[in-house]
Design a protein around this nucleic acid. Structure first.
Lengths: 384, 384
DNA sequence: GTGAAAGCGCTAACAG
DNA sequence: CTGTTAGCGCTTTCAC
């Protein structure tokens, strides 16, 4: 394997000169540069990353920890992150959860021990008491470049950037949408704890706001997977009385629920409305297409990556909590509650139509493209 | 950040001694070792991986490239790989496909340039003409530790290990299963090219073997995703005449198809039988549970990892093509073809029963546990 | 069993 | 603008 020394010899220059063309490239004659580049090409020379890392304390590796691999939501975030780091010549290390469902500790270790230059942590749970969070805070305080992706960071004086989207606000819209269509028994499918707790909270708040009693029996504790959505929906069939709508913690759960319902012959949205969160690609491909709270996934990934890169390159030295906007996309999986007759203001609205004619291919649909990859954000910044 | 020098000073020994306890630990007095370990703990010393890598030409990083992130099949492979490399103190770099759907080139580069010690490539397509394959073969020939995971490696004199499972054999069983239950119009959903081509081929061969005409109109070209399965199944409804069974390139496609069919009120398996491949967790959770060709996913991951580790540690220096066994798991999604009356040998068999009573909760179900994580394999080895 | 010292390949500071 | 040189932190001889 050719080293910088070989290149220098071949080009008949000093190794320092080779290093100079390799990096910035400043202060080198065009002629010399060409000679060096020729030699590099001839020898197929590639700088040794270990030597570089040792000397410069930069590995050009950044890690991204994900709570799970199989949810397309995360795939979109990865794509956003890549868009920023690939051009910057950083390699991306994806960290999946290990068997005990925890990706973070190993990679905290990697960061602390100079394997990687920076870390983007996508949270599924976050509490100040959590060991990982504590380790992370400590590293952040020490100045390691870290960006957290996901809601619920408990501190307003964070030691790293926190990127979120305003899902609770979107969810509020979704609840409003359901209530306006006559739904009063609205179930929630999802975890009771962790980063998504705010969603459950938004669900509760919205019910209270509309003076609807919050029934514990309508809160179905589950995971964030298709499987979980499926089995929670199955449980509905063991009850005498079913809700008329389901709000799911994410699209995967929503689609899982749809599958179970359709298998039982329940028609959506005529007999049951369903709302998801995320707007994964699948959401607009299933039938009926899924009403969901859009999250700007790629934009979140890009933003996280840009902040992280800024910290690594020491361009950025303040911490921000940034919330990208999130919004309801009404598709076909939501419709008026069974037997609903609008009692409100003159406007007859779609909701007053017969159930049968509703649901499929409705026109309320919000233009989706408008939301894709936008960067609208609310920012709470704090100087360093 | 404490260095080995600091440790040596604190423990009042030479640098070399510290290094010795750090590594093998041989030829050190117990007393000295304790002194050193005490110092290491006190200083919170961690060896600098870059320096280590520079000196020893080992990064203790291995990469795993995946064609896609969201298929649980790959998650299971990752888990298997992790089980081997985590105890060996290697860090695992997961490589997702980039936008152009190709994970390999970047990581070939990482291997060639000493970022990583070894590479496991999970293929979705493989042809000798492919640039990636060529680069990979070249690296393999040069002695870089590489293991390919996936069928279809074209050479019988490979330059790296190839781990496969015998899906075509399992698929043959599946086809037999369908034909025995009277199915004659069996559709195939999946890509026409790439690593999964062998599955389409097995489908064709099986049809030929049972003297069933191969109709191009029954071969539905698609991807390997839930979405693809969904939309191919939708296409069925534009036809006057539908097949009675579908064989899908994997479980995701099969489940996607199930979703579309159920949405249209087609009952499974009474009106349509469906077979998948992989046996992902979801396969046994959907209703009806999915008949599928089991692949020993974790075992494949473990085996690939063990072979790779062996090469890295120079314990292994031969190349093998190893095929783990794969087998049909009959669940609820397959049943007799509509109007099927068995004409064969006396045995009345489940198939002769009325359709209505069939399908749900059938008893043909093969014990699944027996297949989990087994290591049965057919091995074709070649000395180095 | 332990210490001393060479150098892995590179960057950056300094001299010319 | 280019050459020389001193390490970065570690492993690994080679003496003792």
């Amino acid at each position: 394997m050719a080293s910088i020394r070989d290149v220098a010899r071949q080009a008949e220059v000093a190794i320092g000169t080779v290093s100079r063309v390799l990096n910035g490239g400043s202060h080198v004659t065009d002629l010399t540069r060409q000679r060096v580049q020729k030699a590099i090409k001839e020898l197929g020379y590639k700088p040794n990353p270990a030597a570089r890392a040792l000397r410069s304390n930069r590995t050009h590796l950044i890690a991204l920890t994900l709570p799970e691999l199989t949810n397309p939501f995360y795939a979109a975030i990865v794509e956003g992150v890549r868009q920023v780091f690939e051009p910057a010549d950083f390699r991306l290390v994806l960290c999946s959860p290990n068997s005990s469902n925890n990706a973070v500790p190993q990679y905290i270790d990697m960061l602390a021990n100079r394997y990687i230059d920076g870390l983007i942590v996508v949270f599924d749970r976050f509490s100040a008491a959590d060991n990982n969070s504590i380790a992370l805070f400590r590293l952040g305080r020490k100045g390691f470049p870290i960006v957290a992706l996901g809601p619920g960071v408990a501190s307003d004086k964070p030691d790293f950037d926190c990127i979120t989207s305003q899902v609770p606000e979107g969810l509020k819209e979704a609840m409003q949408h359901l209530v306006e269509m006559g739904h009063r028994e609205i179930a929630y499918f999802g975890p009771l704890k962790g980063v998504v707790e705010a969603r459950l909270q938004a669900y509760r708040t919205a019910l209270a706001r509309h003076k609807i009693k919050i029934a514990d029996s309508l809160i179905f504790r589950g995971e964030t997977t298709l499987e979980s959505g499926f089995s929670r929906a199955e449980e509905l069939f063991q009850r005498q009385r079913r809700p008329t709508a389901i709000v799911a913690v994410n699209d995967m759960v929503a689609i899982g629920a749809m599958m179970a319902l359709q298998e039982h012959g329940v028609s959506i949205p005529e007999e049951m409305s369903i709302v998801g969160i995320d707007d994964i690609p699948l959401a607009s491909m299933v039938h009926p297409t899924l009403t969901t709270v859009f999250q700007p996934k790629e934009a979140m990934g890009r933003l996280a990556a840009e902040r992280l890169l800024g910290r690594i390159e020491k361009r950025i030295n303040s911490f921000s909590a940034i919330a990208l906007s999130s919004q309801l996309i009404v598709r076909e999986s939501t419709g008026p509650a069974p037997n609903f007759r609008p009692t409100t203001n003159g406007q007859p609205s779609a909701a007053s139509a017969q159930n049968e004619t509703m649901g499929k291919r409705r026109t309320l649909k919000v233009e989706e493209a408008a939301f894709k990859d936008q960067g609208n954000c609310i920012q709470r910044q704090r100087a360093d």
